[in-house]
Design a binder for these strands. Structure first.
Length: 490
RNA sequence: GGCGGCGUAGCCAAGUGGCUAAGGCAGUGGUCUGCAAAACCAUUAUUCAUCGGUUCGACUCCGAUCGCCGCCUCCA
């Protein structure tokens, strides 16, 4: 089996063929660090975290580079507002980014290069572009000559003439062609600046990724990723820069993920429909966010809502409850005969779990389908669990435990089921209890009272207790081994 | 205006021309329960925005129409 990924450049799903056998070199555009991260950033980080984890699971070596843009107009403007330096501001939000990523359980990339630490590499590349006749200096700025790169537009599938018609390009007297983009910006008074052959200034946005990817991954590498909004102009310009300077293909395959929307609109500060990762984690377990993000394919838009998060919570709980119920099985009272609870079709489902998971994930990382495979398996496990007699077959228990173990390993690729199941459920229960009008001891006391009522067949008082607790969101579950309680979600 | 994408059940969401159109949430009926809950079983799209076309056969390919979204300025 082979992994196939959708390549924005070709517009098709393609078989993953790495330049160096068994080694994927991946570059992802990271954040501009001037504010807290929102759930769109979370989607980006989570998508590539999942991709890296899956590639490793499929035995690829992965070199993963994700940059920080720590110098740009927004950073300078925000630093001025806050009476600080752009360096301090950028560093502060890089730290906050790491705090959020750690909470989400996202593994660090192998290399996290910062733009300001690669000014020399950028200056070198800009020099090469000027030497190749693909850039010019004008008043301390350096611009890329769009017309010198005939393939300009090949990623975003647009042509220069059409874009001129769009007429939303700001007029800049310095530019020879309105679409020429800046490689180096002359410093304005009071702005951070670096020395260069064209005078003091700072790099344009796009050049950093060309320079840093070259340094860490080479002139041509396997996969470059980012959000769909980066296709144009950022990634288009990166191609022009890198291929213009190196004379070699830049990237084999481009992966772009979709947006998180709120009420079907892209999040943006101007619309005020903006949610930070922290806002979400205040109210939801990180795995709920992960479950939600991976419930659709990474290229589709994903609409955030409280209802969707409740659905995700219910789904994740179902997975954890299944794992917990199997963990609780013990083999102290088992049989050794051959009357298995597994039917033929059950075995077929159970035994094909990993293969079906791989099929889904090999197909452009189809996490939504993979989640379907998980639930299909959970259904089978629950069915067998319900069929087990009081004295079950030892090998049946082994099989159930082996299956949940595989399930957990596969779910971990999406960062799901990473906690101990009973700990997750218990913690959740305790968290929810703090919002209830009653404590655990009082609940236990009522359960004991109700137990006696039930022995006495005093059903009215027994039901009264149950209703009383239910009014406080506590739900009772009578089982063979006594009564348990759960906090009902709203 | 140009380009890209989407439209599958009440909601969310898979579906790489041919097998019963996955799965989740919600709902309904049943099993289990003293009654419930959970779990399990069954059930919920003769149909995939609409209309045409290609094909022996299309949710899947092509064209048109309608609706929604994104990019074309910073953006994950």
């Amino acid at each position: 089996m082979t992994i196939r990924t959708y390549n924005t450049l070709s517009g098709k799903k393609e078989i993953l063929q790495t330049i160096e056998p068994g080694h994927v070199k991946l570059y992802v555009c990271g954040i501009t660090s001037y504010d807290y991260c929102h759930i769109g950033h979370a989607r980006s980080s989570l998508a590539f975290d999942m991709i890296v984890k899956y590639l490793k699971y499929r035995d690829y070596k992965v070199t993963f580079v994700r940059n920080f843009t720590d110098i740009d107009d927004k950073i300078i403007a925000r630093a001025n507002e806050q009476n600080t330096t752009s360096e301090e501001l950028a560093n502060r939000f890089i730290n906050e980014f790491h705090v959020d990523m750690d909470k989400l359980g996202i593994a660090r990339p192998d290399i996290e290069p910062r733009a300001t630490e690669h000014i020399d590499e950028m200056i070198t590349m800009i020099g090469e572009l000027i030497a190749n006749g693909k850039a010019y200096e004008a008043g301390g700025d350096v611009y890329y000559i769009i017309d010198s790169f005939p393939e300009y537009g090949k990623l975003s599938k647009r042509n220069i003439e059409d874009m001129k018609a769009g007429a939303r390009i700001s007029i800049n007297e310095q530019k020879k062609h309105p679409m020429d983009f800046v490689l180096w910006k002359a410093a304005k008074p009071g702005e951070p600046k670096w020395k260069s052959p064209w005078g003091d200034g700072r790099p344009g946005w796009h050049i950093e990724c060309s320079a840093m990817s070259k340094k860490y991954l080479g002139e041509t590498f396997d996969i470059h990723g980012g959000g769909q909004d980066l296709i144009f102009p950022h990634h288009e310009n990166e191609i022009a820069q890198s291929e213009g300077a190196n004379g070699k293909p830049f990237v084999k395959s481009w992966i772009h993920h979709g947006f998180v929307t709120i009420r079907d609109e892209k999040m943006s500060k101007s619309l005020g429909n903006f949610l930070t990762i922290r806002d979400i984690l205040d109210n939801y377990h990180p795995e709920v966010l992960r479950f939600f993000i991976f419930s659709t394919h990474y290229r589709n838009p994903l609409d955030f809502s409280e209802a969707a998060m409740q659905d995700a919570t219910a789904g994740l709980d179902r997975l954890y409850q299944c794992v917990a119920s199997i963990n609780e099985l013990d083999k102290t009272n088992t049989r050794q005969d051959t009357e298995t609870a597994f039917g033929e079709s059950d075995l077929l489902k159970i035994d094909s779990l990993e293969e079906r998971f791989q099929q889904a994930m090999d197909n452009d990382f189809n996490t939504a389908q993979a989640q379907g495979v998980f639930f299909d398996t959970v259904k089978t496990i629950n069915k067998i669990r319900a069929k087990l007699s009081e004295k079950p077959l030892a090998t049946d228990i082994d099989k159930l435990k082996a299956t949940t173990s595989i399930l957990k390993n596969l779910a971990a690729i999406m960062g799901l089921l990473c906690e101990d199941a009973s700990t997750y459920l218990l913690t959740k229960k305790q968290d929810m209890l703090t919002n209830c009008d009653i404590d655990a001891d009082a609940i236990e006391a009522l359960i004991i009272e109700r137990k006696q009522c039930r022995i006495d067949k005093n059903w009215s008082r027994s039901d009264e207790i149950r209703d009383e607790l239910l009014a406080k969101n506590i739900e009772l579950k009578d089982g063979a081994d006594g009564t348990r309680w759960v906090v009902k979600s709203k």
